Amino acid sequence: MTDQNPQGNPEPTEPENDAAGSGETPFQFTDKRKVDPTSGEARPGEPAGTSDDPLAALDFEPEGEAAESAEVLAAKAQAAEHLDALQRERASFTNYRNRSLRDQEAARTQGTQDVLAALLPVLDDIERAKQHAELSGPMAAIAEKLDASLAKFGIERFGQVGEEFDPTVHEALMHNVDAEATSATVSLVVEPGYRIGDKVVRAARVGVVGPE
């Protein structure tokens, strides 16, 4: 409703914006912040130890240093496995190499023994010719070259008159008694012995003289 002035014109009235007059609930702002923005301390009533971290109640582990540490541990474990496998492979290769070298040496020695066994009849004939002074001239030179070639392969001829009899390297074909002898010695070499290193390919076949 408006009032009229003497001129008959209505006078405006102030709008009724009062919330109390309109029946509406007035708007109120409540500060529910748990930390005082001025002092930075927890407000009274805040449980001790309550964290203001919004992620504290979330049910997952955030990615970061913990995740990186797990990856580093996994990488170290994998590296240790690879190192162990490499060391095992290296040891296996070393054993294989050593075994191969031994096999090669054994095969080489066996081959030399086979060749020597095939040459024994020829070598015996040459020795008999030497004993009977039937080897001279070019044949004597060939015999010397043959001995030098055999020496290059580690072949050694043994068995000399006067050396002490040793049943491990001598084969006694005959035995004579000598009252003055104090030990058994080689008195005659029928066929010399041959060995390669410590391996006796053939024992020397000899005659022996010794005490009763």
Rank of each mutant, 00 (worst) to 15 (best):
A172C: 01
E180W: 03
Q160F: 06
F153L: 10
A179P: 13
S149N: 09
A172Y: 07
L173S: 08
V169F: 00
L173T: 07
T168Y: 02
F158S: 02
F158W: 09
L150S: 01
K152G: 00
E180S: 13
V161E: 12
E164R: 11
Q160W: 04
P167Y: 09
A172R: 06
F158Q: 05
D166V: 11
A179G: 09
V177Y: 00
T168K: 11
E171I: 06
E156Y: 02
R157W: 00
D166Q: 11
H170K: 05
E171V: 04
E156K: 10
E163F: 03
A151S: 05
F158C: 01
A172S: 12
S149P: 00
N176M: 13
A172E: 11
D166H: 06
G159E: 11
A151H: 04
P167W: 06
F165L: 08
N176R: 14
V177L: 08
L173N: 08
H170T: 08
E164G: 12
H170Y: 09
S149W: 01
E163D: 15
E164I: 12
L173W: 02
E180Q: 14
V161I: 15
E163T: 04
R157A: 06
N176F: 14
I155P: 09
I155F: 04
G162L: 05
E164A: 13
R157V: 11
H175P: 00
F165E: 10
I155R: 00
V177H: 02
E164Q: 15
G162D: 08
D166G: 03
D166P: 08
E156C: 03
E163V: 09
E164T: 15
F158K: 06
V161T: 13
F153T: 09
I155W: 02
V169P: 00
N176H: 15
D178V: 03
M174K: 13
E171D: 13
T168D: 15
V161H: 01
L173H: 10
F158T: 03
D166C: 08
P167D: 15
A151N: 01
V161W: 03
A179L: 08
A172V: 10
A151M: 01
F158M: 02
M174V: 09
R157T: 13
R157I: 05
G154C: 04
M174S: 15
L150N: 04
G159Y: 05
N176K: 13
H175G: 05
H175V: 15
A179I: 07
L150R: 06
G162I: 10
R157D: 01
N176V: 13
P167S: 15
D178W: 04
V177G: 00
D166S: 07
V161D: 09
V169W: 00
G154A: 00
K152N: 07
D166I: 10
S149V: 11
E156D: 12
V169H: 00
D178Y: 09
E163N: 05
N176P: 01
F165Y: 12
F158H: 02
K152F: 03
M174R: 14
D178Q: 05
L150W: 04
